[in-house]
Amino acid sequence: MQANTNKAWLGVLPVVLLVAFSAVIPLMTVVNYSVQDIFDVQTRVFVGFDWYRETLRDPRFVDALLRQILFSSLILVIEIPLGIVLARGLPREGRLLPLLLVLLAVPLLIPWNVVGMIWQIFARPDIGLLGAAVNAAGFDYNFTGVVTDAWVTLIAMDVWHWTSLVTLLTFAGLTAIPGACYQAAMLDDASRWQVFWYVEFPRIRSVLVIAVLLRLMDSLMIYTEPFVLTGGGPGNATTFLSQYLTSMAVGQFDVGPAAAFSVLYFLVILLLCWLFYTSVMGSSKGPDPYDEDGL
């Protein structure tokens, strides 16, 4: 028999240190800044929740937040159905498939600021292929001057950039469905819509949840592409939370308010993703159909 010692705690120590340095300490530093007013290294005043109150009352923060939510909703509404339609349209086998998959993956491989650059040039009303063509077709289009044009361009860019992700994930889910399921549905005289809803959808559900979650998180954090494409304009029409935060923290060096802003921003993303995940998983009728002896 061994004496009861507490040496096992030493085994946990590396993990505790790792988590502390990678997550807890940086986050708490930000929280620490967010409750102080810092004039210089020596002079700092504890201000409690003042910065939070100020941030929440700041109309520019609220506007940016609403813009952010509108943007995320719009791209989800477009990218998820479009991604599913494309995935269903892909051939399940054959020589064409690898080529199509590579083509689909191309936008995902392009660095984000390059995507912004591409669309900035592509959509320019004077020389851009898209912008000039739209103007030549008789539509007055100028994404640097008109708010709706800026939004349309921004959303088109995001759809172009990220729909492939949804398509590839969905395609992976679809290929895992046994052929017998389709054949049985065929014998049951199911329509195309019924095949999707009763055969495919339940089996790609968990993949779709991941796709929505990834797109939701990513779109809430969007920074680089609109920064390059519109610079947040015209006016503040495409200024999202991350851009406003950057201008506050880096441009004006308001560390306290920026820290409070950061914490709120983080909580907003966490809250929205949590809301989505629990509402979807809560309404699910049990575990994943692929579980254990499931299909």
């Binding site: 046994p178 017998a180 399921c181 054949q183 049985a184 014998l187 009763y198 055969v199 959808f201 339940p202 089996r203 009728k285 159909p289 499931g294 299909l295």
Partner: peptide, 11 residues
């Protein structure tokens, strides 16, 4: 017809 895979409608 009955298939080797267990084919049912999950929902």
């Amino acid at each position: 017809m009955v298939f080797q895979a267990f084919v049912n409608y999950p929902n």
